[in-house]
Amino acid sequence: MLDEEFFDALYERIINVDQNMLQEIELQGRGYNDTKTMISVKEQELQKHKRALDKLHESIEEDIITKQVFMERKVVRTRQIQKLEEELLNLRKVVVYEGNYPTMEQIVERIGQFRELWSEAVTSEEKNWALKKLVERVVYNREGNRVELTVCYK
């Protein structure tokens, strides 16, 4: 059973967001924006290849190129398009994942909600419930009587 001293230490650790957490949130935000920029660039590149494939079809229809040249170029363009579509699919998955990271504003808001719930909590179960509303997980490192807590916010 966890004692009151542990809960008090955990409460203090949770409501005081440390500098490392702030830096991590900032880095995640930058990574999210970088990924969105990469998606934009890849989408433009994909459109360029699709337009080139359309022009290729027009060229064969107008007898500007031979069927042999058409087939060779079509294979190359089709592969490039497929590769870009796969890359875009993977990048969009990353954006969805990165978009789930909380912003600093969200964490501050959740900490306020957490403080309210915590102040009303009487039992360990109620305190655990308050924790689950704000915290994804708490990682702790125990060395003798010393415990170091790392908080991962939702």
Rank of each mutant, 00 (worst) to 15 (best):
D54G: 14
R77V: 03
V139Q: 08
D18T: 04
K93F: 08
E43W: 01
L89Q: 15
F114V: 00
E98G: 04
E43L: 04
E45L: 09
G112C: 12
R73S: 05
K132D: 15
Q113I: 08
Q28W: 02
V147F: 07
E86A: 10
G112F: 09
Q106K: 12
V135G: 04
V108P: 06
M21I: 07
E148F: 10
Q68S: 14
G29N: 06
W129C: 11
L131I: 03
L91R: 08
K50N: 04
K67S: 14
E87W: 08
V94L: 00
F70R: 03
E43Q: 08
I111P: 03
A121W: 09
M71N: 14
Q82Y: 02
L131W: 00
N145R: 07
A130F: 01
R51V: 04
R92W: 00
V147G: 11
L10P: 14
V41H: 08
E12N: 13
E61A: 11
D3G: 14
G112T: 09
K83R: 10
F7R: 02
G144C: 13
H57A: 13
E87M: 14
D34P: 12
R13M: 08
R146P: 11
Y153L: 09
V94M: 00
N128L: 12
K36W: 02
E61Y: 03
K36H: 03
T103K: 03
